[in-house]
Design a protein around this nucleic acid. Structure first.
Lengths: 196, 196
DNA sequence: CCGTAAGCACACAGGGCGGTGTACATAACA
DNA sequence: TGTTATGTACACCGCCCTGTGTGCTTACGG
């Protein structure tokens, strides 16, 4: 026992305060939303004093941005790095993961914060562009006629499914996957038709 | 002059306080979001005392719900009631209006309020279902193979365009319209192939 | 063995929030 | 003329928010 389970005073656990704060953010922001989660509650959940939290983060804004950055640092690597799937299967697999990650936190943050200049909103934009880019790359790999366009289209389907799931309280990803299959096959067929 | 421009006291203008409150809501909720707009500010913008506002609405929750209800009472009638367009053209026209209504307030409300039981969230669900239903009706009129499915798909595209426009700060409706055209033609072609 | 860094508890500041209490003013109607 | 409905102004409540100031406690490294 080096520094585990000390008494009510002193350093508390192995993982630093920063990690505990960020993992508590992940849970609370998802369950309650960003605006409805106060720093008091967040610090209590992270078992960290408010004073300590503000020594690790300049303010709540930066904390939110960092929370988003930690969410999926290597963009959907769980999907795009699967070498056991064909490119076409990888494109379709992108419509399966969001069920494990029930809501898209990037859309939620952009809407809740409502300020396009907020650091978290800026990161949300970057992330969404990165997803579209990876989809486009995979589309090119799959031999699509117009990879950039297909990537943007598939990204729109993912966001549509996320938004609709949120509003209707019902999973909309199957519908999106069905559309995706049509678009992908269209894009590939177009090419094979053109060249033989 | 019957009741216009009275002094600082007494009834102020022709349009009742209720109308002024709701139209101020429409502006402020869109510009700042719901959560970031306080009742003080809203009443000031509506030139209405806070006391009066709370005589017209039980609370902010109900005010938000009413604000949503007033937004588009007859669901997209500007699109679906146009007799000068073919059913197919009407389906595509649904992707043009949202540029005038820059953001989908229903998605925004559902995300901001974060409570599926909130009256405004419930109405947002009803509205989204109504849109999908009208799209399905028009799809049937256009002779689509599977009208309900096509309606749900087009509704998802609209929501995707709205969400993506919000996050990326760039109009995503053209992309959605392109997908819509593909889906619509597929659905109609499938039928004509089957029967002719 | 002592300095320093990291953490703690607690209290508080300053403001915005939703919502209300009180007292007064006007207009329409009887 | 008097009543009622509708509105006003202003102050106030309790709560929660982000963010600090102060001083104490512990662990580790030199």
């Amino acid at each position: 026992m080096t520094e585990l389970e000390k008494g009510p005073k002193g350093r508390r656990r192995g993982r630093g305060a920063r990690e505990r704060i960020l993992s508590a953010s992940q849970r609370l922001f998802r369950e309650q939303g960003i605006n409805r989660t106060g720093m008091d509650q967040l610090c209590a959940a992270a078992e960290v004093s408010k004073r300590t939290a503000y020594q690790h983060f300049p303010g709540k804004d930066e904390l939110v941005a960092e929370y988003l950055r930690r969410f999926d640092p290597s963009v959907l690597s769980g999907v795009f790095d699967r070498t056991d799937l064909t490119p076409r299967e990888r494109l379709l697999a992108a419509f399966d993961i969001p069920s494990t990650t029930p809501l898209c936190p990037y859309i939620a943050a952009a809407v809740e914060l409502h300020d396009p200049q907020h650091p978290a909103s800026q990161y949300a934009r970057d992330y969404k562009k990165a997803v579209a880019a990876r989809l486009a790359d995979t589309a090119r790999e799959a031999g699509a006629a117009c990879p950039e366009q297909l990537g943007e289209q598939l990204a729109l389907l993912i966001d549509g499914a996320a938004a609709r799931t949120r509003v209707l309280n019902a999973d909309a990803f199957p519908t999106a996957a069905a559309i995706a299959a049509v678009l992908i096959d269209n894009a590939i067929d177009a090419l094979s038709r053109e060249y033989g």
